[in-house]
Simulated scan of single mutants.
Amino acid sequence: MTRNLRTIGFDADDTLWHNERFFQLTQERFAALLRDHAEREHLEQRLIAAERRNIGHYGFGVKGFVLSMIETAVEVTDGKVPGTVVAALLDAGREMLAHPIELLPHARDAIEALAGSHHLVLITKGDLLHQERKLAQSGLGDLFDHVEIVSDKTPSVYARIFHPLPGGVRAAMMVGNSMKSDVCPAIEAGGWGVFVPHDLQWDLEHAEPPDSPRYRAIDDLGGLPTLVGDIG
């Protein structure tokens, strides 16, 4: 009998381990450093605008975030940002790159439960070295059949990754906390998409749920093995 699911892709940041909270803590530090130059809400709006402009240049991850903070600091101070502020932002970035990995509830159990029966692939975007370090520290690396670190997650990227894997795209599922990056493009490529919410989400990752029979949502990864079994 042909199985409906043979390959399962997992997002990494805020799906398997905490990530966004470190960005938000650094953003609070950023607001404190520039409180004499801009109100917090205005500063956040300027920073989001800078991040949106810079994704195509710097990609996703800590390094692009730090560069966008520095750019925003230059803008709101009319080019007079103190060197001490720039140094503090660089220090904050280094701290983010070194933060310890803390797995989210049920992450290891879900992956171990599916590793023997399905082809597992980690699909994450961001800085190559940083993502490789996080995966190594997570202790989950040996459970994946392979890893894809990509510059962005689009339908064509998912099609490229899933096509040569067992069952192809139609028998593949992507699991993640981003409707925009993990769920919608995977479904558009022809696979399944499973949304696992996280308390924190980057503003640029927001999207509405897709109207598709291949869309599912679970409260946490503890429900994933049962969902996979139900789909077959």
Rank of each mutant, 00 (worst) to 15 (best):
P82V: 10
V66W: 00
E71R: 08
L89V: 06
A113E: 04
L67H: 12
L89G: 01
E71N: 05
N54S: 12
A49P: 04
H118W: 04
I111A: 03
A98Y: 04
L120C: 10
Q45W: 07
D109W: 02
K80A: 15
G83L: 13
K125M: 02
T72K: 02
H42T: 15
V66R: 01
I111N: 01
M69H: 03
E71G: 04
A107S: 14
G61N: 06
S68N: 04
V81L: 08
I48T: 13
V86S: 06
R108K: 14
S117L: 08
E75N: 04
H119M: 05
A113L: 05
V86R: 11
R94G: 13
R53A: 14
A92P: 01
H42F: 10
P105D: 00
A73T: 07
V74R: 09
H57T: 14
G83R: 07
A92I: 03
E112N: 02
L104A: 02
F60P: 01
L89D: 00
K80F: 09
V81R: 01
M96E: 00
R108L: 12
F65G: 09
E41L: 12
R53Q: 12
T124Y: 00
E102K: 06
R46P: 04
A107Q: 01
R53C: 12
A50E: 08
A92K: 01
V76A: 11
H99D: 10
G116T: 05
L97V: 04
L47E: 11
L90D: 10
E41F: 11
A73R: 01
M69F: 00
R52H: 12
A92S: 15
L128C: 02
V62P: 03
A98P: 04
K125N: 06
V85G: 04
I48W: 11
L104W: 02
A98I: 06
A73Q: 03
